[in-house]
Simulated assay, not measured.
Amino acid sequence: MRDVCWRCRRPRPVCYCALLPSLPTRTRVVLLQHPRERRVGIGTARMTHLSLPNSELHEGVIFEEDARIIALASDPTTAVLFPGGDADPAGGPPVRSLIVVDGTWWQARKMLALNPRLASVRRIGVTPRAPGNYRIRKEPRPECLATVEAVASALATLEDEPARFDAMLRAFEFMVDRQIAYQATSGAPRRRRRAQAASPLSPLRPYLAAPSRVVLVDGGANSGWPAEAGAAEAGAAEAGAAGPRSELVHLVACRPSGERFEAFLRPRRPLGPSVAHQLEVPAHRLLDGEEAGAALARFRAFVGHDSVLGAWGSFTVDLLAQEGPWRPPSLDLRYLCARHLRRRPGGIASGAQALLAGDPAPRGSGRAGRTLGWLEVVLARLLDLAAEEEVAARGAA
């Protein structure tokens, strides 16, 4: 299993974090990323988000009922960055929020078609000062730049600073150059590389002999604050000091050996009105929880130095990453399940049923504890399947 940087989500040898700037902006950049684009290792939406403190990154296809997007779409100072014949590079109110649709040309058009509210927002386009440098992906039209190139060009125009945002492109150029160099020097035939990658559960093989190294984890977040808290956060965003929109408040973990961990982290912001209901835990357990630093120190001690986190998707892992620089490696069991099934597994319960996994038992409080139980049976089943794969591969050799 490759060692991956949790910040940029690239393998350590091609991590570009050292080249990322931190550029404050007057314009709030809101990136809407198609879920398929998130799995593209050479995508640039996350690179863009990490370069701009005054930015947000949301994943999805349909945002018609998303409260944040509804508010932005109703604001006359919002614009959508999108190439097209009706794109308006100037005119109208000043742009204070810029929505950027991240995906292939086909995905971006489909997202606009599925989101009439978003499609009705004023559009602006950019005229490239030079041809795009996305030499590792094919773009259908000259004005279809990489997301980071398009945002840098748009901000240069909107904030009237043509050179300042060129710093966003250093990490992009490094990624492109390294990818091209790798393709040129890789000696393995392409057919052989595909065959090696065809084993869907190979990331689990290091843990077949020591499954207790996998720490299963799930968590719950505090989000959806009352109106006055949301207004305060919006003011902080305009001042260039916006923080994450969710914070970790419930954390459960266990090992296949039976060791368990649970912590309630006292909210650092007002508790959202429906958070306790959604997490299926009493509100007082959250409000009377541990100080976040103490709870996370206990969790780090529980995980230890030679473990990997196993989670369903990236939500809990991302919440943990927001809390500090400690970043152990992780396994996305939803991704491994999808690779094995060769289709999307849906929720964890349907994924477990498709794998013919066993019956779960709750391993903690509330929804997270129930999810942890499902994770336990999913991991056990995936490890069994990985062992069968390995035996089959040895027999074929």
Rank of each mutant, 00 (worst) to 15 (best):
V281S: 15
P273H: 06
L98I: 15
R192H: 05
A234K: 04
T48S: 10
P128V: 10
E159Y: 01
G243Y: 06
G219P: 04
R343C: 05
L81Q: 03
L319S: 02
P270S: 07
M175E: 08
W6L: 14
R367M: 15
R39T: 04
S51R: 00
R339W: 11
N133C: 15
A150G: 12
L112V: 00
L81I: 09
A368N: 05
G187T: 11
P206Q: 04
P94K: 11
G60V: 11
H49D: 08
P273W: 06
P11T: 07
V303N: 13
Y16E: 06
G310A: 04
R245H: 08
S186Y: 10
V80R: 07
P345F: 13
S120Y: 07
Q353L: 12
L296K: 03
A232P: 07
H58W: 11
A113M: 12
I180L: 13
V40R: 09
I42G: 13
L98M: 03
R129T: 14
R137T: 03
I69N: 05
A276Q: 05
I124K: 00
A242Y: 08
R12Y: 11
L216F: 12
E64A: 10
N115R: 14
G84C: 07
T77Y: 10
A232D: 09
V281N: 05
A392V: 08
G293Y: 11
R334D: 00
P53N: 04
A221K: 00
D288Y: 11
G293M: 08
G187W: 07
L155C: 00
G92Q: 08
C254T: 12
